[in-house]
């Protein structure tokens, strides 16, 4: 369980996250949506101790993220930011293996190796496993980072726009994978998404942010509605039911 209590973050005069409280119970796939600058990424960074909050607390399984030992948290919660850096020439397998660091501190066991191979299989990365990251396409690289985070094998997984750089097939593959991680492995996944229809089709719960606050929060059926989405994005969004899925249209 992740508990966000009255979290606020300011940069100068601008309040990026404004007194947000949010409970993320164990299990389930939570989509964080909202327009640019709504505070989604900042909130995710605060939840994962990458950024200190100006006010409020975040508890992960009852532990305050600002005071708990970082290596303890690293076995409970994994975060992938969208600005993952690729200047280093690491092979995909090396990168994914670092996901085991919190567990083995560099002395990797047979079990760690098995985790690594499974993560590589999961993300279709075996053909590139021994290539350097700077020799891959953007999509392959993105999958390598997600594989690393999954390899970390934490109960809570926070992903900031993991569909960046992915084509349709790999975007759907990624969501199917996150779905499996929640359904079969019992993980809790919080994911920042830009595509409201992906959020609608794959998540259990949608948290819509606007101007640093949680504007709407509920299952897709409650959030994917014309009046809600139009309010969140300041844009006319129509919602249709197609093949049992709620699809918003806003393209023209």
């Amino acid at each position: 369980m992740i508990e966000v209590r009255g979290v606020t973050k300011r940069y100068g005069a601008t309040t990026v996250v404004d007194d947000v409280s949010l409970d993320v119970p164990d299990g389930g796939l939570v989509a964080l949506i909202g327009p640019n600058g709504a505070g989604k990424s900042t909130l995710l960074s605060i939840m994962s101790r990458l950024l200190p909050a100006d006010a409020g607390t975040v508890l992960v399984d009852g532990m305050d993220v600002t005071t708990t030992r970082s290596d303890v948290l690293a076995r409970r919660l994994a975060i992938l930011r969208q600005d993952a850096h690729v200047g280093s020439r690491l092979t995909v397998r090396d990168l994914v293996t670092f996901g085991r660091y919190p567990h083995s501190k560099g002395r990797y066991t047979v079990e760690d190796r098995a985790h690594v191979e499974r993560a590589l299989d999961f993300l279709d990365l075996q053909p590139f496993a021994d290539r350097f990251l700077d020799e891959l396409s953007g999509g392959q690289r993105q999958r390598a980072f997600v594989a690393m985070v999954l390899c970390q094998d934490t109960d809570h997984v926070l992903l900031d726009e993991p569909l960046n750089n992915l084509d349709l097939r790999h975007a759907v593959g990624m969501m199917r994978l996150l779905r499996r991680a929640t359904d079969e492995l019992g993980k809790t996944v919080v994911v920042v998404l830009h595509d409201i229809n992906v959020a609608s089709c794959w998540s259990d719960r949608i948290v819509a942010m606007k101007d640093g606050r949680v504007a709407h929060d509920g299952p897709p059926a409650e959030v994917v509605r014309p009046e809600v989405l139009s309010d969140v994005y300041d844009l006319d969004v129509a919602v249709h039911e197609l093949d049992g899925q709620l699809i918003g249209t806003y393209y023209r």
Binding site: S45, S48, R49, L50, R69, S70, D71, V72, L73, A74, R75, A78, I79, L80, R81, D83, A84, H85, G87, S88, L90, F98, G99, Y101, P102, G106, V149, Q152
Partner: peptide, 20 residues
């Protein structure tokens, strides 16, 4: 050595893996 490889991937990456 591992710490320096991780540091080379950035502060967020390092923190995520529980390293100071």
């Amino acid at each position: 050595a591992d710490r320096f490889t991780v540091a080379g991937l950035g502060e967020a990456f390092t923190t995520n893996l529980g390293l100071d």
